[in-house]
Amino acid sequence: MASRLRQPRTAGTYGRRLLVVAYLFLLVIWPVALVVQKTFEGGLDNLQTALSDPVVTDALQLTVVVALWAVAINTVFGVGISLLLVRYDFPGRGVLSALIDLPLSVSPVVVGLALLLAYGGTNGTFGPALQDVGLQVAFATPGIVMATAFVSLPLVIREIVPVLHEIGTEQEQAATSLGAGPWQTFWRITLPSIKWALVYGVVLSLARALGEFGAVKIVSGNVAQQTQTATLVVEQKYQDFEQGSAYATSFLLALIAVAALVVVTILRPKDDTDGD
């Protein structure tokens, strides 16, 4: 099966190419194209109906607010923990580095359950105490932000860590020896070197945050116009036979996610990132 470099193309080359294209066409390209087609079936009617429905617009607004919060938290936490993991020695570093990936293997439903057990208003471990000081987590925006931050937590870290390893510490040490403080070194040397990995991690997190469904469904309580996010609206509209609105909302969500990915793919310089 090895088609070696600069070898004439054999029937196998074309066969494999055809198989791959057909597989991706049937699994991804055609289905996605159909959703776009269904969204615009009656011209812009579906989009207009969806965008004039307060249930949809409120949900989109909540989704954007939650996603921005979650991504901001993950970015600050991600950069901090990546620097600590790569640049410092402390007991338990290996364990922490392994645990960071945990959220990627946990079912969104389990994430929701876990957060409910910890922060549920009546019988969660911390919930009642937090409620006493006036902070409701579960079935409110903070809970939705936490669920979203949970599921997208490793994405920024996974992008930055290999690049930090790659760039080494020489420039940072040079900056320090020339009298730069830690902040100055970070802003002038470290941040510019990890810029593209960071942007890519942020975009992946954003895509994931906008699209989270299972964890949010459990933690939010799914109350229309209050704690219902855009993905929850898609489910509700579809089940209420308002399929036009469901397709339109799906289209908007998919558009943001895919557009962000494509833009970063085009922007990102190639040699800068293949860190490992």
Partner: peptide, 22 residues
């Protein structure tokens, strides 16, 4: 290359809807 990443970027509920259409 972009197509490969679509399932990762697409919200899961939308993924269900997408497959349902075909």
């Amino acid at each position: 290359e972009v197509v490969i990443d679509i399932p990762f970027a697409l919200p899961t509920i939308v993924a269900g809807l997408v497959l349902l259409s075909l």
